[in-house]
């Protein structure tokens, strides 16, 4: 049994255009998030209640994380960073529902987001320091280190995305093994551990590292 993403169908019957179960669950996650957001903000009240309260709390918490590392940029960076937090967070947690595959247990998802963060961070760096000024930063402290710095930068999205992917897929593999070995005994606490705890922690790490990468490039 292959623990990775499974192709459910092929777009236009083309083998090169698979639609995997992780992609379908990613869509489901997106739709759930959008519906939740819509419900939370449909009738905004000055005194928040229920879902609005939760939405405000979440957004403000993420906003404060951004402000802590990039003072004054919280409002501008909020959509990007908060979407990472919310999407990765829910994607990591849906695996708790039996039969659901974490969208983040697919390298395509994590590497895709990692590359987006990579591009955004360098774009921000160039915007702040100018293209040449930013590239000059790779030659610090001495010019000989330029290749090393470039390799270090290229390693960032890889470590960023593989960390999340490995954690999620690893948890899934262990749970799958336990299911086949002792289906009635162990899965519940393991599910709690791998899907809730590890999922929440990894989402937090992914988001915080995204902020950190952007903040470092802006330095």
């Amino acid at each position: 049994m292959d623990p990775g993403p499974q192709a459910v169908t092929y777009l236009f019957g083309n083998e090169a255009l698979p639609i995997t179960n992780t992609l379908i669950w990613a869509w489901v996650v997106c739709i759930v998030i959008i519906i939740g957001a819509r419900m939370a903000t449909r009738e905004m009240k000055l005194v928040p209640e229920g879902l609005q309260n939760f939405a405000e709390m979440t957004v403000e918490l993420i906003y404060e994380q951004i402000e802590a590392m990039m003072p004054g940029e919280g409002k501008r960076m909020l959509p990007f960073i908060a979407t990472i937090f919310i999407f990765i967070g829910l994607s990591n947690l849906v695996g708790f529902i039996p039969g659901v595959v974490n969208p983040t247990a697919d390298l395509n998802t994590t590497l895709g987001l990692g590359l987006v963060v990579f591009l955004v961070s360098h774009y921000e760096g160039m915007k702040k320091h100018g293209v040449f000024g930013y590239l000059k930063g790779f030659g610090e402290p001495v010019i000989i280190l330029f290749p090393l710095n470039v390799v270090g930068e290229l390693a960032k999205p890889i470590s960023h995305s593989f960390r999340l992917f490995g954690n999620m897929v690893g948890g899934g593999i262990i749970i799958m093994l336990i299911y086949s070995a002792a289906p009635w005994v162990l899965p519940v606490p393991l599910h709690a551990w791998f899907d809730l705890f590890v999922g929440a922690v990894q989402a937090l790490i992914f988001g915080m590292i995204a902020i950190a990468y952007i903040a470092v490039c802006r330095d």
């Binding site: 990613a26 969208p103 395509n108 895709g112 987006v116 897929v169």
Partner: peptide
């Protein structure tokens, strides 16, 4: 298990 394909593009568009 680890194969990069067009899904990455869909995921980015999704995002």
């Amino acid at each position: 298990m680890v194969d990069l394909n067009i899904t990455m593009l869909w995921e980015v568009v999704n995002f």
